[in-house]
């Protein structure tokens, strides 16, 4: 659903940033730190990383920070006062990839089914995504196998595609996108009659999603499969924490004398203590069960309950796994198993 197409000159990005900031918005954009790239608040477009396939961490933190206060409290004698958070600052995420943009709907499906998580929802409502489509991909990318594509518009407010001139073809996709254009209409010129497709990376479909989702319920009991796949898994949380769609969390209290805060922190089903009871009983005592949970949750349970897949095919988990657990390879193996 494209509202309109425009041309954004490459040197207009800086001007657009200035207009967005003048409007009171915080801009998060990819910034290099050593070999890694993180979404960070930037003052100028010149701070942005130039060339990257994918950022180290996803932009998930903009709407679901790795640590956030759920509320603060103050003890006053025997009484307790609770203070809720104020409204989040309007934020523009610039330079995220289409797969990342698609992940917001997945996160939202958890935070707004049944009980409504107002904190997440207001962060999401205050966030706009100016996505840049992918001109390059690597062997870990598999967006096209899970319903996305390098130029997919899902979840973006504006999608930019770099065309031959170095300028951006801008697809204005939502009311939020339109509102940003309205801040600086002079920067958005008439779009050339160019097809964005030829500038997009080629990401071949690598497995049959339908086959995979059909096979998973049965594969659950194939202990040997999960054991063989996960023998080298070290049980850290790197995959979950770089994932744009992983949403599991922990709740922790921290206090200083009479005041304190209840925090929400990212958590991972790969940790052995994720399910451990105080009694010592653990429903998932071994790593193969935890690996199975990760795969089943993303590709089967999520599908059933939230009507979304829990994966956008960004490939971060596999790029960053210290033990080279390659999700794509393992999904293919399950989908193709007889």
């Amino acid at each position: 659903m494209i509202i309109e197409k425009k041309l954004l000159k490459q040197d207009s990005v800086e001007k657009l940033f200035a207009k967005l900031k003048a409007d009171g918005r915080r801009i998060l954009a990819p910034k290099a730190q050593g070999d890694e790239i993180f979404f960070e608040q930037v003052a100028s477009a010149s701070e942005m990383a130039k060339d990257y396939i994918q950022t180290t961490l996803s932009p998930k933190g903009a709407v679901f920070p790795r640590v956030e206060a759920l509320f603060r409290y103050q003890m006053e004698g025997k009484d307790v006062k609770i203070e809720n958070n104020s409204e989040p600052q309007p934020t523009v995420i610039f330079g995220l990839r289409p797969c990342d943009a698609a992940s917001f709907a997945i996160l939202n499906s958890v935070f707004s089914w049944d009980y409504q998580d107002s904190q997440f929802k207001s962060r999401l409502a205050q966030t706009a995504a100016i996505t840049v489509s992918c001109s390059r991909a690597d062997e870990y990318c598999f967006c096209t196998s899970v319903g996305g594509s390098p130029g997919d518009t899902k979840g973006s407010d504006i999608l930019l595609t770099r065309i031959g001139s170095g300028d951006y073809l801008a697809e204005i996709l939502t009311e939020k996108g339109k509102a940003m254009v309205t801040l600086a209409p002079e920067l958005f010129a008439e779009a050339p009659s160019e097809d964005k497709e030829k500038y997009l990376a080629k990401v071949p479909v690598k497995f049959d999603l339908k086959k995979l989702t059909e096979k998973l319920p049965e594969a659950f009991n194939n202990n040997e499969l999960w054991m063989e796949q996960s023998l080298r898994c070290l049980g850290c949380g790197a995959c979950a924490f770089v994932c744009p769609a992983c949403v599991c969390f922990d709740i922790q209290d921290e206090s200083k004398r009479e005041s304190g805060v209840r925090l929400r922190c990212w958590d991972s089903c790969g940790f052995s203590l994720f399910t451990a009871h105080t009694s010592g009983h653990n429903p998932r005592p071994v790593q193969s069960q935890r690996w199975r949970q990760r795969v089943m949750h993303k590709f089967s349970y999520f599908n059933d309950r939230q009507k979304y897949l829990g994966c956008v095919g960004c490939g971060r988990c596999s790029r960053k796994c210290p033990a080279d657990m390659n999700l794509l390879e393992h999904l293919k193996a399950i989908a193709e198993a007889r």
């Binding site: 049944d114 599991c248 969390f249 922990d250 709740i251 429903p283 309950r305």
Partner: peptide, 24 residues
């Protein structure tokens, strides 16, 4: 069932048994 829980409202993922949330 008494699985470990954090949120109690079907979000944090801790209490899942298959596709079911013990809390929900």
């Amino acid at each position: 069932l008494e699985n470990r829980m954090k949120c109690g409202i079907g979000k944090c993922g801790h209490c899942m048994v298959g596709k079911y949330f013990v809390c929900k």
